[in-house]
């Protein structure tokens, strides 16, 4: 099973990398989500996939015998909660940016770092500049 999961991990990282390189912020959020899940899968793999028995210590025993590795499950649970909250925050941030800036194209977002005036503008930055003008 492990090679299959390792392959799935690789594919997910590749998909995430592709999405993250997009200029569209919606795709970037999706990329972050996929990357977070790929990471959770890598934690699961790192704990080795052996037993399917729940990691419960039987009554009277003091040590776990033959159960699945419980540590990756605890780690993934923590990581899922964190990545869920961060992706929720990111989505809200991107949405409010979309409303205020009127674009989802990261190249057109030059509010914080305006381009120098004397530079010869390209087509896209001209369009961006025109879009920004009313607010200035």
């Amino acid at each position: 099973m492990e090679p299959v999961f390792a392959l799935a991990f690789g594919v997910m990282v590749a998909v995430a990398a592709y999405l993250l390189m997009s200029r569209n912020v919606l795709r970037v959020v999706l990329g972050l989500l996929v990357l977070g899940n790929a990471t959770n899968l890598s934690i699961f793999l790192a704990g080795r996939m052996g037993s399917r028995t729940p990691p419960l210590v039987a009554a009277g025993e003091t040590a776990l015998v033959g159960g699945a590795n419980p540590l990756p499950q605890a780690l993934i649970l923590t990581a899922i909660v964190i990545s869920f909250s961060l992706v929720a925050f990111t989505t809200v941030l991107f949405e409010s940016a979309h409303r205020r800036l009127g674009t989802v194209d990261t190249d057109a977002m030059r509010e914080a770092e305006p381009e120098a005036a004397k530079k010869v503008p390209t087509d896209r930055s001209q369009a961006a500049a025109r879009k920004m003008e009313p607010a200035e």
């Binding site: 912020v25 972050l32 934690i43 941030l93 800036l101 977002m109």
Partner: peptide, 22 residues
């Protein structure tokens, strides 16, 4: 508007970095 624009870049790049850390 400035902060939202800056926030997008800050949040995205930092999130990728911490996910890579994990």
């Amino acid at each position: 508007r400035e902060q939202l624009d800056a926030g997008i870049k800050y949040v995205t790049l930092n999130l990728i970095a911490t996910t890579f850390f994990l």
